[in-house]
Design a protein around this nucleic acid. Structure first.
Ligand SMILES: [Mn+2]
Ligand SMILES: [Mn+2]
Ligand SMILES: [Mn+2]
Ligand SMILES: [Mn+2]
Lengths: 158, 158
DNA sequence: TGCAAAGTTTAGCCTAGGCTAAAAATGTTT
DNA sequence: AAACATTTTTAGCCTAGGCTAAACTTTGCA
């Protein structure tokens, strides 16, 4: 039985301790940061995918896949343009700039790592897709690397 | 070498295919849904933690830990009150309703599962905390169950 | 007890990201 | 070519969630 002399640092189950306030705050700040860029990333990634698969990215298709109205897409396209991620002319389909392509590529890769990781954990495809769509924006490079490695090992060792 | 006769369903590496538009839209809709509740959950969870650890939840402490201004907290508290999650009187600290306690407990558990899972994958504590803070809101029950199981196995089999 | 510091609330500003409705442009069909 | 359908854009409304500034209440200390 544990006694008062058993005074190793508390490694017990619960870990019910709060981090110091500053670290805690940084945690939430990181989440807020992710939320600032995540929708942009999803749009750019989707536009890249549409360009690859359909040859062009039309506002209608973006709206259908995003599950939002065209008006919402129109305003987002303007914002992407303002940020130098896409080029577009009125009533024509949308294209990625060099920067846009780079972001699309990076997002696509990261998204893929998370999706494959979930699958390799044993999560069914539909669920994995849903979870990955949200999780991808909250995964650090560190964790991403570990996920990549894990997936590889699973694939090798069946 | 693969030939035209090798016509099994494409199980190859890339998985570069897009889901059908409706499923794709449901993916993004799920993320939007999560975003609607996640800040509420974080506040309620934090208030519960403060009540447990400090005996009371004061707006100043919430603001410090959230990394936002007190004015931001004040308005959020009103919203939590509107939703029947907390009780509060002017210039007094905040308490959870029964519903609030239930949400806090559930969030705390789920948060813990994700955090422990990341740790058991080999992610360092600080990074795991940051990632978990965001990921927790995008993890389905299915995935959560798998994470729980994985963590247990890791702990058992060292 | 009274005053200063600390904590809380309110008002008002801003951006993001949904929406509808309506106008304008483009594409298709007869 | 005209009419109709589709697509795109614009204007304007709404909520969430940050912020600052200022007023107000409570608390702690001389
Ligand atoms: Mn993505
Ligand atoms: Mn996403
Ligand atoms: Mn949490
Ligand atoms: Mn969280």
């Amino acid at each position: 039985m544990p006694t008062y002399s058993d005074n190793r640092p508390d490694t017990s189950e619960q870990d019910t301790n709060l981090p110091p306030p500053e670290q805690h705050a940084r945690q939430y700040a990181a989440v807020r940061d992710a939320h600032e860029t995540e929708l942009i990333e999803d749009y750019v990634e989707l536009i890249g995918d549409l360009l690859d698969h359909a040859g062009e990215a039309r506002a209608t298709d973006i709206a259908a896949r995003m599950g939002v109205r065209q008006a919402t897409v129109a305003r987002m396209i303007r914002r992407l343009n303002d940020q130098g991620l896409v080029t577009n002319e009125p009533y024509r389909s949308i294209f990625l700039t060099e920067r846009g392509r780079a972001m699309a590529e990076e997002s696509r890769k990261r998204h893929g790592v998370v999706l494959q990781f979930l699958r390799s954990l044993g999560v069914d495809d539909a669920t994995a897709r849903i979870d990955a769509e949200g999780m991808e924006h909250h995964v650090s490079e560190t964790t991403l690397g570990i996920m990549r490695e894990f997936t590889l090992k699973q694939k090798g060792g069946d």
